[in-house]
Simulated scan of single mutants.
Amino acid sequence: MAGTAAGDADVVALLMRQHGDIRNLFDEVERTTGDERRAAFRRLVRLLAVHETAEEEVVHPFTRGSVPDGERVVEARLTEEREAKEILSRLDGMDPDDPKFLPELLALRLDVMAHARAEERYEFNHIRRNADEARLAAMATALKAAEATAPTHPHPGTESAARNLALGPVAAVVDRTRDAVRKAMGKDG
């Protein structure tokens, strides 16, 4: 879901911008109702799914190999991602007008924002210290490529580069087909 902002040539700046986009989409889902909420929620699901998959394929492998105690840092982030994907998966099958939706969404928001803060503190700062400008740019390019082919819905249990590369293409085709059908049927704003 990468845009063309000036900072998109630096993986950390790109990811930080996406964290802001995620916060804004949570705000939009919470303040809207009906079709507007459904459309905003679909955009949020897509951004979260694509963003996490790309991080799992590009950012976490770098962290494992280049950041002090990288394995521990990544394992903590993967646990958070798995938990968030499980909540997001439940929400993805729920009607946003259901009275149970908003409390679940708020729980997801708390988890996702805590996860984003942990990434920013324990991963992104270290990436910036351990990667030169060329590496940050190469990682941004790789992140955008991963996002272009990532699944657009959560798939708990695929929180690794290997699993994403093995299962992701099939899941992405299924997800993107489902998205196109929803849009054609007018069920997505």
Rank of each mutant, 00 (worst) to 15 (best):
A137P: 09
R43P: 03
T152F: 00
G189A: 08
T63P: 03
L143G: 08
L143V: 08
M139F: 02
D8W: 08
D175P: 01
R38H: 14
P169R: 05
T33E: 15
L14H: 01
R38M: 07
R37F: 09
D175R: 00
A171D: 09
V11E: 01
A172V: 07
R109M: 06
D95P: 03
D97H: 02
D97Y: 00
T33F: 10
A171F: 15
T149N: 02
F62M: 04
H126Y: 12
E147I: 10
V74N: 06
P103F: 14
A138F: 10
G168W: 10
G7S: 01
K187L: 09
K85L: 03
M185K: 12
K183N: 11
D95E: 13
A40M: 11
V74Q: 04
L136Y: 12
E159R: 05
E80M: 06
A40G: 07
L167T: 09
T152G: 08
T4Y: 09
N164C: 07
R72L: 12
L143S: 05
A171S: 08
G70W: 05
H115I: 00
E104T: 12
S66M: 15
R129T: 15
N24Y: 03
V173G: 05
R23Y: 00
E28A: 13
A184D: 01
T152Y: 05
K187I: 00
A150F: 11
T79K: 09
D179H: 13
M113A: 13
M113S: 09
R178K: 12
G157D: 05
T33Y: 15
T177G: 04
V74K: 11
V181Q: 02
D8Y: 14
A145H: 01
T32G: 12
A180E: 02
S66G: 09
A54N: 01
A9S: 15
R135G: 14
P103A: 12
M1N: 10
V174W: 08
R72G: 10
D188K: 08
A146E: 02
R37Q: 15
T79M: 06
L136H: 14
Y122F: 14
V50P: 01
R128M: 14
K85Q: 10
A40T: 12
H51Y: 11
L14M: 06
K144D: 10
A13R: 15
V45S: 07
F62Q: 01
T33H: 14
E80Q: 14
Y122D: 12
H153E: 15
H153N: 08
D175L: 04
A150Q: 03
A148M: 00
T4L: 14
R109A: 10
M139H: 06
M185S: 12
P151R: 02
Q18P: 06
T158V: 01
A166W: 04
E123R: 13
E119G: 02
F41H: 03
A84H: 03
R109E: 12
L102F: 14
H153M: 09
P99M: 05
D21R: 09
A84Y: 04
R38T: 13
V181Y: 00
D69N: 13
L15I: 03
P103K: 14
D111T: 02
E55R: 03
E30N: 06
A184C: 03
T63Q: 11
R64W: 00
R77L: 09
D98F: 08
M16Y: 08
E57M: 09
T79C: 11
G65C: 08
E133F: 13
